[in-house]
Design a protein around this nucleic acid. Structure first.
Lengths: 167, 167
DNA sequence: ATTCGTGCAAATAGTTTGCAGCAGA
DNA sequence: TCTGCTGCAAACTATTTGCACGAAT
């Protein structure tokens, strides 16, 4: 398993300190409270870790950043945070599940470049107008199937720069 | 069986008979041969089962249709067929992996309506022009990340008609 | 004090693999 | 005949859960 540099999101005014955006903290706390759940240190560490990386990460990657977190609590807390709408689980063809912060916490509707070789996922933003067209088309098709669309996903699969170089 | 007519090239008529299209048989056989693999009865049964259902199915669903297939051989053969480019593995947020025939065998570039409640997936076709726009936009974004796009995916998540009714 | 979270260890479950026999080219 | 496919059972591994202790309200 290779080391992946933990890059910081180029978001305006984002802290580079270990602390999480106070805004995000408040939102997370209130969403947890809504479920009768507490915003404990372990959960804060998870949100922290996910804030620092701007792409979906595996549990292993999270534990590499936060080695003090026990495996079982991490699974349990990611599930809770997912229920609270704070974390989004991204399914992949690779062996490990990946997690990211929910879009409404990052204010960045994005899509994914999924490397079929190493499983790494990069975030990208497609033009808003195109995204709206996709959504409209899906809504229209869903109508025929009486399917209720909640969200959509546009992903690209292929080879990341690193894996392409290794060939 | 939901067909949504769209301006996509519907080159070949679909059979409604239980047997697999002879065309598909030939293609599958040759792709297997390319890997030094045989087109055995078990593999034929798998292709058969996937041809009959027009959506990604779980192993359990396959075995319900073809109960004579042993579990381990099914996993092994699906992996082989995937390598041969005959079968495509669809990753989901649900517990089971799902499989479908490769698009170039069905001549139907399609996308998915994924039910977040029961995990069932329906196929839909979005307008070809929109699909091309999506692809172009992803190619453009990928250029920046030096990512090589091989394929893309446009999926909708929500509630299928059946699950929506149960609420 | 009581409820909820934690962390270890053990269990679960989808998937993979070793191996002996069988079958297709 | 000779590889390679099959099918059973056993192994593997990501994830989940039971339980007793600790923390927060």
């Amino acid at each position: 398993m290779r080391m992946i540099p933990v890059g910081n999101s180029a978001k305006r005014g984002r802290l580079s300190s270990p602390a999480v955006d106070a805004d995000v903290e408040t939102t997370v706390a209130s969403r947890l409270r809504r479920l009768g759940q507490r915003f404990t240190a372990g959960r804060r560490a998870l949100v922290d870790a996910l804030t620092k990386v701007d792409r979906p990460v595996t549990i292993e990657e999270i534990l590499r950043v936060e080695p003090r977190l026990p495996l079982s609590s991490t699974y349990r807390n990611l599930a809770i945070l997912q229920q609270a709408g704070v974390v989004h689980r991204v399914s992949t063809d690779h062996e490990f599940a990946r997690f990211e912060l929910a879009e409404d916490l990052t204010d960045r509707h994005h899509h994914h470049l999924v490397c079929e070789s190493c499983g790494t996922i990069e975030d990208v933003e497609i033009p808003a107008r195109l995204d709206r067209s996709v959504r409209a088309a899906l809504d229209e098709l869903a109508r025929t199937a009486r399917f209720r669309v909640a969200s959509h996903r546009v992903d690209a699969f292929g080879l990341c720069a690193r894996c392409a170089a290794e060939r």
